[in-house]
Simulated assay, not measured.
Amino acid sequence: MLQSMTAFARCELSIDEGILCWEIRSVNHRYLEHNFKLPETFRSLEWPLRDKIKKELSRGKVECTLTFSPQIKNNPIQINLELSKQLIQAAEQISELTINPTPINPFTVLSWSGVLITDQINHELLQEKALALFAQALQELKQNRNREGKELQTLLEERLVSIDMEVNKLRPLIPEMLDNQRQKIITRCQELAVSIDPQRLEQELVLLAQKSDVAEELDRLQTHLTEVRHTFTNKEPCGRRLDFLMQELNREANTLGSKAIDVRTTQAAVNIKVLIEQMREQVQNIE
């Protein structure tokens, strides 16, 4: 089954501490490359997240973004009065040692760590929930890649059928084209009134027929088409293999065009190359 490397997934989770949200974007790439954008609280998760991606994906440039919006609660503000008194007393003692001391600013006291009593967040539990949500988003990404992979396979199969039609249309014309070329050469020699040894002429015509015979190229084209279809059934990622097969198909199409002795062969070679190029562009997105 084919998998596309281009997909997007978004998963959100609302919990007591706030809202967690993962966004994962994947595009085509020669290898597996991943990039994470994480809030400072979740930086320690990067290596476990990398391991999860490596187990699920083999190719593609993957960008993963985590956002966390803390829950705003309407609880009354609580102040650590004992700590506030100690800070004020310490500030007054320092003021006695200075000339023209500045009055104590209440907001300066409030900004001191521990003066405002806030609800403690269980960061370990929060990270576990972020990991579980990432696994969910990653599965959604894979499903989207699978769905697009099926669409790509349909497009490729349509073009394989078109190439088959070109090959099957050209194959029965080969004897006729070779015979036409033979008659053209004989007629041309007669028009020029050139005296040529019949045996030597026959040998040259045989060599020309061998060089112009495209049956072997058509056979190899169909062999490669069969291999492409077989590759579709592989369970392992097959993007690189398909890319190689596109190169081999293009090689045979080029040879077919170079050996053309008839406009019909030339036209078939051009049509096949166009179809191969269309497939090659799609194959670049396959994992």
Results as ranks from 00 to 15, higher is better:
L275P: 01
E217P: 03
R241D: 12
F244H: 08
K259R: 11
A268V: 03
L201T: 03
L208T: 08
L207F: 15
R241M: 11
Q247D: 06
L245C: 05
C238Q: 14
R264V: 00
A269Q: 05
E204V: 10
Q284R: 13
D219M: 07
Q210I: 15
V283R: 05
S258V: 00
A260C: 05
N271G: 00
Q203H: 09
E277F: 11
Q199K: 14
R280E: 00
Q210N: 14
D243R: 06
V194N: 00
G239M: 10
E216K: 02
P198H: 07
F232K: 00
P237E: 11
Q282A: 00
A209R: 01
S258G: 00
D219P: 03
R251P: 04
F244W: 05
K259M: 08
V206D: 13
V274P: 01
R251N: 06
V274E: 11
D219R: 07
T266S: 15
Q199A: 15
T231W: 08
R188Y: 10
T233S: 14
I276E: 05
R280H: 07
K235Q: 13
V214F: 06
E204K: 10
K273T: 09
P198N: 06
E216Q: 07
E217R: 05
V228R: 01
T255C: 01
Q199S: 15
E204H: 05
A253S: 13
A253M: 06
R241Y: 02
L275Y: 10
E191N: 15
S212V: 13
Q199L: 15
M246G: 05
M246R: 03
V206G: 09
A268W: 03
L218A: 02
D262S: 07
C238F: 11
I286A: 05
G239H: 10
E202K: 12
L245M: 08
V283A: 11
N250K: 06
N234P: 00
L275I: 04
R241G: 05
K211D: 03
E248K: 09
R220E: 02
H224V: 06
D213W: 11
A268T: 04
T266Y: 10
I286F: 13
E216G: 01
K235H: 13
E216P: 01
R229P: 02
L208D: 02
K259H: 09
D213R: 09
L208A: 11
E248F: 01
V270R: 07
K235A: 02
H224K: 09
D219W: 04
N285W: 14
D213T: 12
I261K: 10
Q190E: 14
E217V: 04
E281K: 07
D213E: 12
P198C: 06
E281V: 05
P198T: 08
E236I: 10
D219L: 10
T255H: 03
R220K: 11
E236R: 13
E252C: 05
R280P: 01
D243T: 10
E204Y: 10
D197K: 14
K273V: 10
E216F: 02
V270Q: 08
L256G: 02
G257K: 07
I272H: 03
R240L: 08
R240F: 00
M246L: 08
Q203P: 01
Q267V: 03
E252Y: 02
L218H: 03
Q199I: 15
